[in-house]
Amino acid sequence: MSFNIRHLKGKHALSLEDAVKRCAQVGDERSKEFIYKTCYGYIRAITMRYVRNEFDAEELTNESFIRAFNKIGTFNSEGLGDRFEKSFRAWLGRIAVNISIDFLRAQKQLLALDDVSESEIEHRPVPVSGNLHVEDIMKLLLQLPEIQRTIFNLYEVEGYSHEEVSVLLAIPESTSRTYLTRAKKKLRELYLASTNITAGF
């Protein structure tokens, strides 16, 4: 399902806050279109971090907006002031993450985890690379195994705690930590390989 984006007409331009409140109160279609147009790129970027296929990412993006519009009345906008847009985008982003995880689980792409030994669990941060930029990370992420990419996204990009990741993916916190460590190490290896740098690990 997709939305038909039209040029918004009217004497007064909407703000995101006005559009969200109007959508929550009366389900205003013009407001929905404004929210979709304003936040589409942000949500598409999230879904693309979880799935490799652009068609799937588009479907997940549209599903995220549909679910958000159905639940928009639950978004608490009271007293946010200047923090409104940031808070709303975070709320919308979490919906997109949950839908992406549901999709991966339904497609059985979150495969059974390898055995994780206690000795493998890292209790200190593992640097990826001081020269590794966000754009580089996003490209290299696509080369990671599904579970590593998902946990890296949830923890490092979306800001979930290991406790939240464990609940969302139904895995122990220690497993979340271990797969994050594996993801960081793999990203560093991929980066060094892509720049023809060799280093011991």
Score class of each variant (00 low, 15 high):
Ser2Val: 09
Phe3Leu: 13
Lys9Ala: 01
Gly10Asn: 10
Lys11Asp: 07
Ala13Arg: 15
Leu14Pro: 06
Gly27Thr: 04
Glu29Met: 03
Arg30Gly: 10
Glu33Asn: 04
Glu33Met: 08
Tyr36Lys: 03
Lys37Asp: 09
Ile46Ala: 14
Arg49Pro: 12
Arg52His: 13
Arg52Cys: 03
Asn53Ser: 08
Glu58Gly: 00
Glu58Asn: 02
Phe69Cys: 09
Asn70Tyr: 02
Ile72Pro: 08
Ile72Lys: 01
Gly73Lys: 14
Asn76Tyr: 06
Ser77Val: 08
Glu78Arg: 14
Leu80His: 01
Leu80Asp: 01
Gly81Ile: 15
Asp82Ser: 12
Phe84Gln: 10
Lys86Arg: 15
Lys86His: 07
Phe88Val: 14
Ile95Val: 13
Asn98Ala: 07
Asn98Arg: 05
Ile101Gln: 14
Ile101His: 03
Gln107Phe: 07
Gln107Lys: 15
Gln109Trp: 11
Ala112Lys: 11
Val116His: 04
Ser119Thr: 07
Ser119Trp: 09
Glu120Cys: 10
Ile121Met: 02
Glu122Val: 05
Arg124His: 12
Pro125Met: 14
Val128Tyr: 06
Asn131Glu: 14
Glu135Thr: 00
Glu146Trp: 05
Gln148Lys: 12
Thr150Lys: 11
Asn153Phe: 08
Asn153Thr: 13
Tyr155Gln: 05
Val157Ser: 12
Val157Leu: 12
Glu164Leu: 04
Ser166Val: 07
Ser166Lys: 09
Val167His: 02
Leu168Phe: 03
Leu168Val: 06
Pro172Tyr: 06
Arg177Ile: 12
Thr178Ala: 15
Tyr179Asn: 04
Ala183Lys: 06
Lys184Leu: 01
Lys184Thr: 07
Lys186Gln: 14
Leu187Phe: 03
Leu190Met: 14
Tyr191Glu: 00
Leu192Ser: 03
Thr195Val: 15
Thr195Arg: 03
Asn196Cys: 14
Ile197His: 02
Gly200Asp: 00
